[in-house]
Design a protein around this nucleic acid. Sequence first.
RNA 1: GGAGAGAUGGCUGAGUGGCCGAAAGCGAUCGCCUGCUAAGCGAUUGUACGCCCGUAAAAGGUGUACCGCGGGUUCAAAUCCCGCUCUCUCCGCCA
Length: 423
Amino acid sequence: MLDIKYLRQNIELVRSKMAARGQSIDFDRFTSLESERRDLLMAVETLRSERNNVSKEIGDLKKKKADASSLIARMSDVSAKIKELDERLRITEEELNAFIMTVPNIQHESVVMGHGSEDNPVVRSWGEKPVFTFKPKEHFDIGENLNILDFACGAKITGARFTLYRGLGAALERAVLNFMLDLHTGEHGYTEVLTPFMVNRESMTGTGQLPKFAEDLFKIEGMDYFLIPTAEVPVTNIYRDEILEEKMLPLYHVAYSPCFRAEAGSYGKDTRGLIRQHQFNKVEMVKFTRPETSYDELEKLTANAEEILKRLGIHYRTVSLCTADLGFSSAKTYDVEAWMPGQNAYREISSCSNFEDFQARRASIRFRREESGKVEFVHTLNGSGLAVGRTVVAILENYQQADGSVLIPKVLQPYLRGVDRIT
RNA sequence: GGAGAGAUGGCUGAGUGGCCGAAAGCGAUCGCCUGCUAAGCGAUUGUACGCCCGUAAAAGGUGUACCGCGGGUUCAAAUCCCGCUCUCUCCGCCA
């Protein structure tokens, strides 16, 4: 959510920023709603002020046993008027709120103008594509041949886009996520949290999934709870409606969670394999920072995600999302894309974003400056570190051997009781 | 699932219709005192939104709202009434 005051004063700037994102926003409607709100507010507050004053007089008169009936009659009218204006104000604020909730964040000046993912500039890459003496297979073939991934069984138990992992497949998934958590907590300074996997409506609204993206969520029947699409939601909401001390910042949290996504609108895309599931595991990093450090923190956060792939020995590249590809709440996003030899493509395995104060304003997460005592919004950032299922895909495809077996990267072997190859 | 108790500021806790944005204590900040620390004394101590004045930004003044959330009664609600949520205790069930 953008700052209403900022929006009011910078309409043209915001308009051009939104145009670059391919969004057209009806700012005339905003302007008229906004001035209507202020007019109504002023009117209602004036009446309230009168009522407060006269009510005091009535109290005094009554104490002196004097007659207050004419004042009471007048205030009765005033109260009725207040009620009526209040209702109009409520409706206007609701509309204004609904409007502002649908305006995306303003992108950082370093974000390049583009029309789609093909315009995302590559900012760096690491490692090299492995060379195979045979035609590398896709992970679902490797996994099924080794009997560690069973897509048919996942479909039987639940439905499409669910998978059963068997034996060393299940163990590999667990090894990968433990390795990630240990690295981020042990070397990168993150504090681990384990959160609820379903959250209420306020939490979903705080991080921006609602009201705009309800169709992407799974909702619990009979309750106003939702399955989380990412640990970002519960972790960011830890500090919802709080004022933090400046010296607490920056706060680093890392959380494992399963992620549940309805994947509405992605029919026919990545229908085979682990790439696009209704349920997948992810290790998520979340930061709360002072505004002046958030872009440095974004670089560090992205480096923390990349470090996982370096240690696993998987070639990747990092792209900076262009205006058209940038998420709703994000001011700047780096995607880390791992090389997947079976697919002969780079696939997103992490997405690291700086939301600046966009989420913090929605979720009301603030901090008090030590110097001035002033309250300001924090900046929130988050990034996958990494998507666990897709990391397993990358391992299977990059470490596959001619005989169909898969080597286990050295760093994971301690997490697999020393197993160095799945056969 | 059944029975009961509760929700007030950073914290503890008073407040059953007007003098309550809210006593008192603790904590915090500033000042005095002091060789230093402690003690003591004094002052300050929420957030949001609007308006005025003014500014590079601020400061300042003023109004309104906020005592779990939503509604109602009343000239007037932290206080009375209704609904909801959450917390705690006991019973049942359970990993």
